[in-house]
Amino acid sequence: MPLHIEKVSHSYGTVEALADIELDIADGETVALIGPSGCGKSTLLGIVGGLLEPTAGRVTFSGQMPSDSLNPFTYIFQDFALLPWRSVADNVGLALEHRALSAAERRERIAAALALTGLTEFAAAYPKQLSGGMRQRVGIARALVVRPAVLLLDEPLSALDAQTRELLMEDLLAIWAREKSTRVYVTHNLEEAARLADRVVVLSRRPGRIREVIAIDVPVAERGQARHATLLVEVHKKLWSLIRDEVVTADREMQHV
């Protein structure tokens, strides 16, 4: 579903978080939002999915809302946001319980989402018993089960160690090759952006503005190939050169509490 971010600004009280964000996202495209901490990228994601009301501007979509999507705008959260008192299957089922589905179809959908994320044998486990990677797989399964039109990923891999992160990137790519959706991916990890996104939107420090939009011409599915290795390094370098100064300044900034 094509998305349009139209002149979006946001302030928390007197603190300006986002200024004049203008961006069109094509159907089926994956856009990564990167920028130094405090640049408002998570705020922007909250606005896109309707969890935050922008101070100014609006987010629109064009075309028909897909009829088979139970929850067109669906999030995957950095901290997983799982209910610790529910099993894996019931956490995934939470997204369906209030929808008009037969019990059989609900079970079927949950089973399919668990299978797709490799969680079938963990269906009865509680989040506490799982590793961080498995917990985020539950978060991914919960998002897939509603067949989102727009998938909003808020630093989905940031709470994971480097090796697990690598595994989950592979998983995401495998899932994305099968499931059609438009994706907005917030991250501070340049490698994730270079590996997963069709376009990378670089935001400036607070108040966040779009500094540059970088399109990566190699299809996401082919980026693992050795012949594209230099390209990814180039992208990474370019992204870093764009945000390095801002990161330095953000790092030295004192908190105004």
Binding site: G49, L51, L70, N71, F73, T74, Y75, F77, A81, L94, A95, H98, R142, V146
Partner: peptide, 9 residues
Amino acid sequence: RMAQSFGLP
């Protein structure tokens, strides 16, 4: 917030 994002009443 998660529950809201999945449209729970």
